[in-house]
């Protein structure tokens, strides 16, 4: 009897602990959302209402009046282009590193691991210096190229690991059938890489969509401003007017959370920089 009670108590303890964890992890997001749909005078009410008694989308309308769609469009274009470029270049490089004992392979591996580890903040000022000198300041192209340079190593690493799990016999067979090396890669190997493409693509997409520090340094005009930079400028513009600020946070966060819910299992491999299970 006491044994059963001990198990019950333990289960209850775990449950309470889990509730505490959920509260600390998600409360800022949920409360941010509930405040973003409150009328301005209700937001600052003390004690605060957890569930708003009066719902309004005025703050979201304020954002629309302040060009939020343009910034979202910029973020979407830059993120999509980065994903395409990263996958295009990274897949080929990963394949070469997985299959061929070429001269300089060790050097390329050192470059990949080094760039994967260099924190972007240490590069900001030198990179700004370069980008300004070659006329890519304040362009979407500049952002795409920089994001590609920063995210490429993780794509190469994930693809490399995945190619290593594909048996070489496949290529041998294809080449006996008369395929060239490139045809073998394109027709036999690439169609098998779906899961690794999705995992690395999602990782790049999230990083590019979320990036703030690179974009805030490399762009200044409204024409190419991305969503996170826009949120930062809203912070300066709206100050302590929390309604539009919280609404902007929700707009920036929503697509990422949706993708995370849909593709959860692919996310972890990007974080660990490790293997993908097909």
């Amino acid at each position: 009897m006491s044994y059963k009670r001990a198990i019950l108590a333990r289960g209850l303890g775990t449950f309470v602990l889990n509730c505490v964890i959920v509260f600390f992890a998600l409360a800022p997001l949920l409360w941010g959302f509930s405040s973003s749909i409150k009328p301005t005078d209700q937001i600052l009410k003390v004690p605060p209402e957890i569930i708003p008694s009066e719902v309004t989308f005025a703050h979201y309308r304020t954002l629309i009046e302040n060009d939020v769609f343009r910034y979202m469009g910029n973020s979407a274009i830059v993120s999509a282009a980065t994903v395409l470029l990263c996958l295009g270049i990274g897949t080929f490089a990963g394949y070469a590193l997985s299959r061929f004992a070429f001269r300089g392979r060790n050097f390329v591996m050192v470059v990949v691991v080094t760039v994967m580890s260099i924190p972007i903040a240490a590069l900001l000022v030198p990179t700004y210096t370069l980008i300004a000198n070659i006329g890519l300041l304040d362009t979407r192209t500049g952002l795409v190229l920089l994001y590609t340079a920063y995210e490429l190593p993780i794509v190469i690493w994930i693809m490399l690991g995945y190619f290593n799990t594909i048996p070489r016999q496949l290529e041998h067979a294809a080449m006996i059938d008369g395929y060239s090396r490139f045809e073998t890669l394109r027709r036999v190997i690439l169609p098998l890489t779906g899961p690794a493409m999705i995992a690395s693509g999602l990782f790049v997409l999230t990083s590019a969509w979320n990036d703030f520090v690179v974009a805030v340094v490399m762009t200044s005009g409204q024409a190419v401003r991305t969503l996170p930079v826009a949120v930062y400028f809203y912070l300066g513009f709206f100050g302590r007017e929390w309604g539009p600020l919280l609404a902007a946070s929700m707009v920036s966060m929503a697509p990422i959370i949706l993708i995370f819910i849909l593709f959860q299992k692919y996310f972890v491999s990007g974080v660990t920089g490790g293997s993908v299970k097909g």
């Binding site: 997001l29 979320n210 996170p228 302590r240 995370f260």
Partner: peptide, 23 residues
């Protein structure tokens, strides 16, 4: 979830929660 959303948004939300304005 706090890890996958942008750092900017996460910090902004905490700034809201920890500020006097939130109560």
């Amino acid at each position: 979830v706090p890890y996958i959303i942008s750092m900017l948004v996460g910090s902004l939300l905490l700034r809201w929660v920890l500020s006097q304005d939130s109560g």
